[in-house]
């Protein structure tokens, strides 16, 4: 008896509260930058593709919805020849972002990806690649890696000495 009265009272009380519902899509909720929505591929501060096609995002993906193929430019810089995410399978778990050693793959606060045709949820590299560095403005993997690429020779990365002269016996 007491419980029933208390329930009716609670309902009455809530009738005078401000509604939580917003008028989507006219109104949009605030989403934090770390919200896990649509996946993008970012560029490094020099404007080059950040992705080095290491396959770690694909390995981390629990639904195996990332497929890519590595290739190289003429100077040894590695990048994906194709990079495909099947968003109809993606569960937006963010493991790929955590696995990415170059901060290339990032999840964004965009979730509006409805399609009438599932096939349209297959995103290729052209659909994923944005023109900026995303959440991390400064990081450039090739500045810290030992690999030589166009414009960065051996010994020119951060915290590297000049290449060894193997012909000298001096210490």
């Amino acid at each position: 008896m007491l419980s029933n009265i208390r329930t009716i009272w609670e309902i009455l009380r809530h009738s005078f509260r401000r509604p939580e519902t917003i008028q989507y899509p006219e109104q949009k909720p605030y989403l934090a930058p770390r919200f896990r929505g649509r996946i993008i591929l970012s560029r490094d501060p020099d404007g080059e593709e950040r992705c080095v096609a290491c396959y770690l995002c694909a390995a981390a993906c629990p639904v195996d919805c990332i497929a890519l193929q590595a290739t190289e430019d003429g100077y040894g810089r590695r990048y994906p020849a194709f990079f495909r995410i099947n968003f109809s399978r993606c569960i937006l778990c963010g493991f790929c972002e955590e696995a990415c050693p170059t901060l290339a793959i990032q999840l964004t606060p965009d979730y509006e990806m409805c399609e009438y045709d599932r096939q349209n949820l297959v995103y290729e590299k052209e659909d994923l690649l944005i023109s900026g560095p995303g959440k991390y403005p400064d990081y450039n993997f090739y500045r810290v890696a030992g690999l030589a690429i166009a414009g960065k020779d051996k010994g020119e990365a951060e915290n590297e000495s000049e290449p060894v002269d193997t012909h000298t016996l001096l210490p």
Binding site: Y55, C61, V63, C65, I66, A67, R84, S88, R89, V122
Partner: peptide, 16 residues
């Protein structure tokens, strides 16, 4: 057991 891309490698041809 760590094979990747099972649901994406053929998705450009057919998403199923």
């Amino acid at each position: 057991h760590r094979y990747t891309g099972r649901t994406a490698m053929h998705a450009d041809i057919d998403v199923s």
